[in-house]
């Protein structure tokens, strides 16, 4: 435990000096321990363990985006734990809301999601717009900026006045939603 605190804290300091390999090893080790914790928490909350990887990625992005705020004179583990706990609670709340939302969709919305049009959806720009339109407004602008205009997360963040972490998370979530919708259309 103590050695992990030390080696991870050193890796966080190495990151500031631009030492990529050390930081990458830390991220990988942290992800492994996160995966275990998150999977256990999700199953205790009776939520799908399939979301584990999403939550792990969100925590990694959160830690990465706030990494310059960690004070090396303070222990790292409590800092990581507090962020993990926060993202875990956030994810649990979102998952519960998603479940509710999915149940509360009207018939029209269901057929909108799964209805097939004659053309190939991926190559039709109007259709692409239509697919994006099922996303919440905030996610739509992120997808347009990154996916269609080709901006980097940082550019998109400054353009939209959001934090880079928020942009990454929003983009990640919208891709998931879009993939699921596209999948349904191809099959249906």
């Amino acid at each position: 435990m103590n050695t992990r605190e030390q080696s991870w804290a050193e890796a966080m300091c190495a990151e500031r000096r631009g030492e990529r390999p050390v930081y990458e090893i830390f991220l990988r080790e942290f992800a492994v321990s996160l995966r275990r914790i998150v999977a256990a928490r999700l199953s205790r909350l009776h939520l799908s363990a399939a979301e584990t990887e999403d939550v792990v990625q969100e925590v990694l992005i959160a830690v990465h985006s706030k990494r310059d705020q960690w004070d090396p004179s303070r222990p790292l583990m409590p800092w990581l734990n507090a962020i993990t706990r926060y993202k875990m609670i956030d994810a649990a709340r979102r998952l519960r809301r998603d479940i509710k939302l999915r149940i509360e969709l009207t018939d029209d919305e269901w057929s909108d999601l799964s209805g097939s049009s004659g053309t190939d959806p991926v190559h039709n720009a109007a259709d692409l717009e239509r697919m994006i339109s099922v996303l919440p407004a905030g996610q739509q602008s992120v997808v347009r900026a990154i996916g269609l205009d080709g901006a980097t997360p940082r550019e998109a963040a400054s353009r939209l006045g959001m934090s880079e972490g928020a942009v990454r998370v929003a983009f990640h979530r919208s891709l998931k939603t879009l993939m699921a919708a596209a999948h349904k259309r191809f099959e249906g």
Binding site: A14, E15, R16, R17, G18, E19, R20, P21, Y23, E24, L27, R28, A31, Q57, L60, I61, H64
Partner: peptide
């Protein structure tokens, strides 16, 4: 993701 984040080290 980890590789992309590590690219931003420093």
């Amino acid at each position: 993701l980890i590789r992309r984040l590590a690219d931003e080290a420093g």
